[in-house]
Computed example of a mutant assay.
Amino acid sequence: MAARIDLTLDGADAQLLAVFWKTALGYVDEPPPAPFTTRAEWFEHFDLPEDESVDDGAWLCDPDGVGPRLCVLRVPEPKTAKNRLHIDVRVPGHGSPEVRWARITAESERLVRAGGTILDTFDGHHVVMADPEGNEFCVGAASA
């Protein structure tokens, strides 16, 4: 049996990044683990320093249960280099190369409106972008 993965993304503002990635991926806030009814209740269960807050993290999931969970954590240090691992956002649907490129372009523009930045464009194939804190990701078409 293959292992399941979760992805963890570090940043200065976990809540800002969570809003962006929920928009980008169509994810939702993951419910807290049982028996907790809220993330704050779950967070209080741990013996953590007083200066740490439940808002220092966000836990997201695919509402259909297909994609990996995404944990966004606040860290004190800034991003200093290119990501060694990045997320590829794949737009759904098939069609001609022109139709696929139009969908990629439209999705990239939508993510710019959500706070992303276009870093580079590989016409007809994919767009390299950054989230609001500079974490790189790509937008491309789903496999046929």
Rank of each mutant, 00 (worst) to 15 (best):
A3P: 13
A3N: 15
I5C: 07
D6R: 08
L7F: 14
T8I: 12
G11W: 07
G11Q: 07
A12V: 11
A12G: 15
D13A: 09
A14Y: 02
A14L: 05
Q15M: 04
Q15N: 04
L16A: 09
L17W: 00
L17M: 01
A18F: 04
A18G: 07
A18S: 08
V19H: 15
V19F: 11
W21F: 09
W21K: 07
K22H: 01
K22W: 00
K22I: 03
T23R: 11
Y27L: 01
D29P: 10
D29E: 15
D29F: 03
P31S: 03
P32T: 12
A34E: 13
T37L: 11
R39M: 12
E41P: 02
F43T: 01
E44N: 15
E44R: 14
E44Q: 15
H45L: 06
F46V: 00
D47V: 03
D47T: 10
D47L: 05
D47W: 03
D51G: 07
E52W: 12
S53P: 05
V54Y: 01
D55T: 13
D55N: 11
D56Q: 00
D56S: 02
D56K: 01
D56M: 01
A58R: 09
L60K: 01
D62W: 05
D62I: 04
P63G: 04
D64K: 12
D64T: 11
D64V: 08
G65H: 01
V66G: 05
V66C: 11
P68E: 03
P68T: 04
P68D: 02
R69M: 11
R69Y: 10
L70D: 08
C71I: 13
V72N: 08
L73Q: 14
R74S: 14
R74L: 08
V75I: 12
P76I: 09
P76V: 02
P78F: 04
K79W: 06
T80S: 12
A81V: 14
A81T: 13
A81M: 11
K82Q: 13
K82D: 13
L85A: 15
H86N: 09
H86F: 09
D88L: 03
D88M: 03
D88C: 01
V89L: 10
R90D: 15
V91C: 03
G93N: 02
G95A: 00
S96V: 01
S96F: 04
E98P: 03
E98T: 12
W101G: 02
W101E: 01
W101C: 01
A102F: 07
A102L: 06
R103N: 12
I104R: 00
T105G: 04
T105R: 12
E107G: 12
E107V: 12
S108F: 08
S108G: 15
S108P: 05
R110I: 05
L111Y: 08
L111M: 08
A114R: 14
G115P: 01
T117Q: 09
I118W: 04
L119D: 15
T121C: 10
D123V: 11
H126Q: 14
V127F: 03
M129E: 06
M129A: 07
A130M: 03
A130R: 07
A130W: 06
E133L: 04
E133A: 10
G134E: 01
G134W: 00
N135T: 08
F137S: 02
V139K: 00
V139A: 00
V139H: 00
G140Y: 10
G140E: 11
G140V: 06
A141G: 03
A141E: 00
A142D: 13
A142I: 11
S143G: 12
A144L: 14
